[in-house]
């Protein structure tokens, strides 16, 4: 049994989770944890269940067995919006912005406590407007932080791919969540953008955020991660520092096995 103190230190604890789709064992006993202030990379060959694990943690997929704890609280199979509102923000493997809304709106909708109830429209209008102004200012600040301030009135759909990736990251920051999850933050972007994104992640770590990400770009992983969790066939086969993982025979076998088939 873990002591209460260490539970709090661990932002995320995934305990022996299972998810089978028919005959496919997408997640098969994965277990790992993320400590406060850490950057953890989740890697593994294609089909290892990385994205499924993400979806299980964030409540988009109901798990069959196991437990997931966030900041000591059991969040197993809770609704996605409930989990999100506990202070966990994520991006998706494909870009999921609100394409026909402006960059600024995309930011503002990510923020908390925005008086979004219908009753506020009529009964606390003044407060709502004030809050909006505050949110706008904060959104602009964050856009400056990621370098998108010039695009505030542009529709998200008109941004370049790299800019959309940046906006997604900026949105997760706007949620004020302490724990951020990125599904392939570096996929498909050019070198300049890659540097920008890794710089951003480092800055976020400096600010005390905890980060879990899935990525195929090994250089990026080795550079960024404090800890690497390797998944294969839905189960973790190795956990360690990037250095330890590099020389791990099981990991090499898993990747080579993946290439063969």
């Amino acid at each position: 049994m873990l002591s209460r103190k260490s539970e709090v230190l661990q932002v995320l604890r995934v305990v022996d989770i299972y998810k089978h789709f028919g005959g496919i064992k997408a997640v098969n006993g994965a277990e790992f944890s993320v400590k406060k202030g850490e950057i953890v990379a989740l890697i593994g060959p294609n089909g290892a269940g990385k994205t499924t694990v993400f979806n299980c943690i964030t409540g988009f997929i109901q798990i069959d067995k196991g437990r997931i704890f966030f900041e000591g609280e059991d969040i197993t199979n809770k609704r996605p919006e409930k989990i999100a509102s506990m202070g966990l923000a994520r991006t998706f493997q494909i870009i999921r912005l609100f394409p026909k809304m402006t960059v600024l709106e995309n930011m503002m909708i990510a923020m908390r406590d925005q008086y979004e109830g219908l009753h506020h429209v009529f009964f606390s209008r003044k407060k709502m407007m004030e809050k909006q102004k505050e949110a706008e200012e904060k959104a602009i600040e964050l856009l400056e932080f990621v370098g998108l301030e010039a695009k505030e009135d542009e529709l998200a759909m008109n941004l370049s791919y790299g800019q959309q990736k940046l906006l997604e990251i900026a949105k997760t920051i706007a949620t004020d969540a302490e724990f951020l999850m990125f599904d392939e933050p570096a996929a498909g972007v050019n070198l300049t953008m890659l540097k920008k994104i890794s710089g951003l992640l480092k800055k976020l770590k400096e600010q005390g955020k905890t980060i879990l990400f899935v990525e195929h770009n090994m250089e990026f992983v080795m550079n960024m991660a404090d800890k690497v969790v390797v998944l294969d066939h839905g189960d973790e086969i190795a956990i360690g520092t990037p250095k330890q993982i590099k020389g791990n025979k099981k990991v090499i076998d898993a990747y080579l096995g993946g290439v063969q088939c």
């Binding site: 789709f21 994205t51 979806n55 988009f60 997929i61 998706f92 493997q93 494909i94």
Partner: peptide
């Protein structure tokens, strides 16, 4: 029965 594809 199909699980919803969260990716897209």
């Amino acid at each position: 029965k199909k699980e919803e594809d969260v990716r897209g």
